[in-house]
Design a binder for these strands. Sequence first.
DNA 1: TATATAGTGTTTTTT
DNA 2: ACACTATATA
Length: 757
Amino acid sequence: MNNMDYLKELNPQQKKAVEHTEGPLLILAGAGSGKTKVLTCRIAFLIDEIGVPPWQILAITFTNKAAGEMRERVDRAVGPRAGQVWVATFHATCCRILRQHIDRLGYDRSFTIYDTDDSRQVIKEIIRQLGLDPKVYKERGILARISSAKNHMTDPEQMEKEAFRWEEKKTAEVYALYQKKLKQNNALDFDDLLLKTVELFRQDAEVLSSYQERFRYIMIDEYQDTNSVQFAFVQLLASRYRNLCVVGDDDQSIYKFRGANIENILSFEKEYPGCAVIRLEQNYRSSKKILQAANEVIAHNTGRKSKTLWTENEEGVPVRFRQFATGADEAEFVIGEIGELSRTQGKSFRDFAVLYRTNAQSRLFEEKCVSADIPYQIVGGVNFYSRKEIKDMLAYLKTIDNGADDLAVTRILNVPKRGIGQTTVTRIVQYAAENGIGVYDALQKAGEIPGLGRSLSKIQGFTNLISRLRAAAQEYLGVQQLLEMVLKDTGYQDELEAEDTEESRARLENIGELISKASAYEDTAEEASLSDFLQQVSLVADIDSVEENAERVLLMTLHAAKGLEFDTVYMTGMEENTFPGYMSLGTGSEEEIEEERRLCYVGMTRAKKCLTLTAAQMRMVRGETRFFNASRFVSEVPRNMLDSGRDTTDTRRFLAGGREEWNSRAAGHEPGRIGGRGTAASQTLKKKNPLFAMREFTVSKADHLEYGVGDRVRHVKFGSGVVTEIKNGTRDYEVTVAFDKAGVKRMFASFAKLKKE
DNA sequence: TATATAGTGTTTTTT
DNA sequence: ACACTATATA
């Protein structure tokens, strides 16, 4: 394209950002300010106007999905040359670099990538080996500690030195062993991908120099979410030509928990004195009302870069807030409304998104979607690639590709069942450890291992199977065919077919999907190989598989929603301790609250036309019912900007009625009814007018109970008994009753329906 | 050795 | 509520 059509559509700041090609540039891009457009135009401009060869451009995005979109858009602007622009995520970029050069760090270039699950297994094994108490040293915590150390580029020795508590010393020890194991298994975890690349660059001037020469123009998206290692990576790469353009929004930094360092963006100007700073403050996405509300909320944060988003979009409808008695009511309202809007206003299901803080909250919405027959897709939760059957298949591929991965080998050693039991496995692993060889090597030498008895032939059966598959893979089979062969020859398929349950059929279906993914991979990959396939598979994010134009409602966490936009957004679970979550409230640190607030801001700014905040007064959390107040973020939107459903006389009447009834219950006149399903009449009312279910923000715990310790009470199901204990919890009374027939039970007063006798 | 059952702990967010 | 682990039992 010779003309600069794409420049004409840009506003002055955007244009400036596109045309500023030389030297460091910081683009502070508010939500919905068209930064993807700027980035793609900038790439096109570099190629078309400046004459930069496409392969000298590196663009790093946050997700594979974003990378794909960006490539597509550049492709549209400059044509097929766009294929030579390197667009990828940090992890994929590092992975590609390491595939070329990691041998210089003493790893094999066919390394495998461990996901969090794999890493946990390794940690667990180490804790066992060191004889540490698994109650004190939990894999999860240790892994988090190690990950954070890696994000700060701290190695085990350093951690050991800095440790002053016994557990920290031990953690450092686990860390050291963990790294050793990973290396033995020729595996890298997610953090290693970045860390080893930086290590490589630092240690090998030649390699670094070649990449510095190659990538003369570097662009980083979502810069506010980069961590120290990524920062170091960028610094190293950009230090020669200094044509570094970073785009970010400090208000949308939501990944502190995985090491993102907000300072990276706040201090960019210090790192690169004299860098250009461009602010994109015009929002093209949301209505005025939505944007105003979001601005109000985020204004409660301190330490931001000054920035005020504005928009020329229409005024729009007010942001709504609705509070319901239970999580189920909340879900019913949201899904019910979506169904109604699609029926009556011809809205498309893809215009809707339901957002929540934690994946666990998805269930209620999913249930309502199923019962209302509304098509939906849940993003996240259990990742496709972490399903058991998929991991099993991949473990076979890994074993075929790289027999050094002990984790993969032990995973499939007896899957499907081939009579190799726990005792045998332990013996083999022990032998491998004693002789400093891999588990697969040990299997091949099984004849030398004493005490295996009858298992020996089974083991030989396994190694023969693997050699056969390996030979097939090397000689003539593609990934797809190999997978099919694995499925059949291992007996995996037979086992699932014999099981013939709904679950086993679903598993087979999942494997079928994996096979079609493999086939799609072979069709598109430049140079298809087993290692490369395994790499791609381990670096996909949940959001990557979301198709833009499918006709369904999307359900996802607020984190997953970043970078997306929807006509109508429901932010659900807007309750204290749900969002902001109890984790961030527990510490009382303002910093964590601010991160949650940014998350809220991200959520709000996903909406184009209609934004609804919803909350429940009680919901089940880990099997117990809890009471919640509305989120502080709701009250941070000024009342006059918020439609709380309280402004019409109708509503007020309903509310008054509702509250009266509630208060009378709360006062203890009918303790058994709190949280119950309510009377038939109130249920009909609820159906007629969902506002009936709405309440003020007040807590809903009984002030006192009609009975005390020692009183005889009667329970509908358990019969009579004596109250032995009453614990006054923050949310509800917890009553212990010794029943005459049913034994001792602990229950919540509001649900127990206890009557004094 | 494999499976059924009871007991235990657990969850924020993700590449 | 659910998943995972330890223990008992066939």
